[in-house]
């Protein structure tokens, strides 16, 4: 089975058709995705801004970190699941979309980021209570850059050129020279 066949199969499912061709599902999913970005993004911003010492510096980092966690998780789940559904609607187009792949690369880098900074920052938040290390601040800046990049490239997916050939490739409807 080729990738193309798998993607085309996905596009043929009822779920995919319902989102791709339907009136409300696509914008509603998009709206929930946006609200989840506001939610998850907000908590993430708060967390990173705390690491940078700009938001709630008088509160202990670990205190805030543990309280943010459940919200981050819920937000993340909603963002990713709505994202998956949106992707399920048009996998063929996304496969050819440069912005989609850049976004996914950034997403992978987010995973790398979590792993790289686990020991020094996120694994033991109490370490930051005495004072936020410069390594932690670097982690925060990179986190903000990665997620901002994902928001930008995510926005650009819906509007990039990749699926629309400039010269449309369609078999001619008519075969007579006079056009009828």
């Amino acid at each position: 089975m080729t990738i193309q066949q798998i993607l085309e199969w996905i596009e043929s499912t009822h779920l995919s058709l319902a989102i791709r061709e339907g009136g409300l599902p696509y914008p509603v999913l998009g709206g929930v995705h946006l609200l989840a970005i506001a939610w998850f993004g907000g908590v993430l911003l708060a967390s990173d801004l705390r690491l940078l010492g700009w938001l709630m510096p008088q509160r202990r980092f670990s205190d805030l970190w543990y309280q943010f966690q459940p919200w981050k998780r819920i937000g993340f789940v909603v963002v990713v699941s709505t994202g998956l559904l949106l992707a399920w609607a048009e996998p063929v187009r996304l496969w050819g979309s440069p912005n989609f792949w850049i976004k996914m690369t950034l997403f992978a880098l987010v995973g790398v980021h979590a792993w790289v900074f686990h020991a020094s920052v996120y694994g033991q938040p109490e370490k930051m209570d005495a004072g936020v290390t410069s390594r932690a601040k670097l982690a925060a800046v990179l986190s903000l850059a990665l997620w901002s990049g994902m928001v930008l490239t995510g926005r650009l997916i819906a509007f990039d050129d990749s699926f629309e050939p400039k010269i449309p490739d369609v078999t001619p409807v008519t075969s007579h020279a006079d056009g009828h």
Binding site: L52, W54, P98, N99, I102, K137, V141, L144, A145, L146, S148, G149, L152, T153, L156, A158, F159, D160, D161
Partner: peptide, 23 residues
């Protein structure tokens, strides 16, 4: 610090110059 932050965010945004068309 804020300058670096803005620069990093903008750099990430601006990299994607020519190829992307915004409908």
């Amino acid at each position: 610090k804020p300058a670096l932050l803005v620069a990093v965010v903008l750099a990430v945004c601006i990299y994607d110059g020519a190829p992307a068309k915004a409908h």
